[in-house]
């Protein structure tokens, strides 16, 4: 009988799948943000009643004043690239056919920002400070962040 293995094909192993998944709800303000994105195809911020700043994505509390925000307003579709990265691999570490630019975009006079793919521009042409426009153009929006992308303004 076998006491040690020199042939890896003789090795006995047990394979399985952990079956891990989650379903994330976006909270009261996040729900408002994504419902507006889905229904009106626009980006929504929340307004602090105390400091009057607008936050995007909409959130329920002002992080500075610690008060609840119940007022929402559209923040428009034009923003500025604050940071970006160029992806050459998928989440599964397989090479992408085309490199993907992910850009963090901020809006004038608005706190926060949104991260989404930037289309229609060569990776080498992307610059911090460039103006981009939000596109929410899926035929069937899902009401999640994957509905959102940017194009040069």
């Amino acid at each position: 009988m076998r006491e040690y293995n020199t042939n890896s094909s003789d090795l006995r192993s047990v394979s399985g799948d952990w079956g891990v998944w989650y379903r994330y709800t976006h909270g009261v303000a996040g729900e408002k943000f994504f419902q507006e994105m889905k229904a009106s195809r626009q980006l929504t911020g929340s307004v602090c009643p105390k400091c009057k700043r607008t936050f995007v994505p909409a959130s329920m509390y002002c992080e500075d004043c610690f008060v609840q925000m119940t007022e929402y307003r559209p923040v428009g579709d034009t923003g500025t690239v604050a940071s970006f990265t160029v992806l050459h691999e998928s989440l599964e570490e397989t090479p992408l056919a085309e490199p993907l630019v992910a850009a963090f975009v901020q809006f004038d006079g608005v706190a926060g920002g949104l991260l989404a793919p930037l289309r229609g521009v060569q990776p080498g042409q992307v610059q911090i400070g460039m103006k981009v426009k939000a596109v929410i153009d899926k035929e069937q929006p899902t009401g999640t962040i994957v509905d959102l992308a940017w194009v040069p303004a």
Partner: peptide, 11 residues
């Protein structure tokens, strides 16, 4: 609305 993720975590 929800965001769902189903992991493919194998061993």
């Amino acid at each position: 609305l929800t965001t769902e993720w189903r992991g493919k975590i194998q061993y």
